[in-house]
Write a protein that binds this DNA or RNA. Sequence first.
DNA 1: AAGTGAACCTGAAGGC
DNA 2: TGCCTTCAGGTTCACT
Length: 297
Amino acid sequence: MPELPEVETVRRGLAPAMEGATILDMVVRRANLRFPFPPRFQDRLIGQKILDVGRRAKYLLWHLDGDETVIVHLGMSGSFRVSAINERTKPLGAHQHYFAQTAYEKHDHVMLVTKQPGGQKFEITYNDPRRFGFMLMEDVRPHPMLQKLGVEPTGNRLDAALLSEIFAGKSTPLKAALLDQRYIAGLGNIYVCEALWRSGLSPFRAVGSLATKNGKPSRYAAPLADAIRAVISEAIDAGGSSLQDHRQTDGKMGYFQHRFAVYDKAGQACIKQGCGGIIERIVQSGRSTFYCPRCQR
DNA sequence: AAGTGAACCTGAAGGC
DNA sequence: TGCCTTCAGGTTCACT
């Protein structure tokens, strides 16, 4: 499912149920996702207060009171559901009784019950059919998983100068380079395709062409930086993109998928004014690329 | 170094 | 109805 805008949407959905709340109880229903769960995972979380829910690229960061951080990645199919617990209709008693009456859905792997200082309780469920996601504790900081990440696409650092700097002299195709989290962290297949279309650049173009011979930004750098920032911001505002089963944490759909220009549009007319091209699907390093061969050069 | 393909895993969709 | 193939929002690893 999730690229940066979807993960940010999840973060915003988790925040009201987690930030400032205490973890009352937790159930982990299998030994591993993509990686084994951390040793004594429940013991280290139950009773802890969550200070805030952060995000770095596609990683969620649960900053705990006890100076530990939980790192969560949603992989391809991970999602969270959050629901307020109404104790009138679902009396809790001792909280461990709560899960006994919970109806698990298929692929629900982790469940948490949190309680805000005001008393409101929440049930938070992690579901992940393909299990490419994971949950880790950040024992070493920064966690090795986060050390190699490049700049955030929405931060102030992503501009024409930075693109020309990090890509100068390289011959990698733009498509592959933009998917590489070591350069820009958070883009995935959808938003790379969309950003390239918006900037009129071919997915085959060598990234080195974003820099001139003396290392300054070429005329292609600023349009790409602007397109990346715009498409990510707009997608976040739209609550992400809902393909297949992706939902926001409250069950609502994101709606950015209605604004795709090229992603999954093979055979359709390019919507750029006066272009007249037909969107093509090709494969680059094992991933689908959707682009307009006419206006993306 | 850079590029490709496979691997991890399940489910949906399409062809026959 | 079922069976088979292909594909999917990510990342890492093994190979040329």
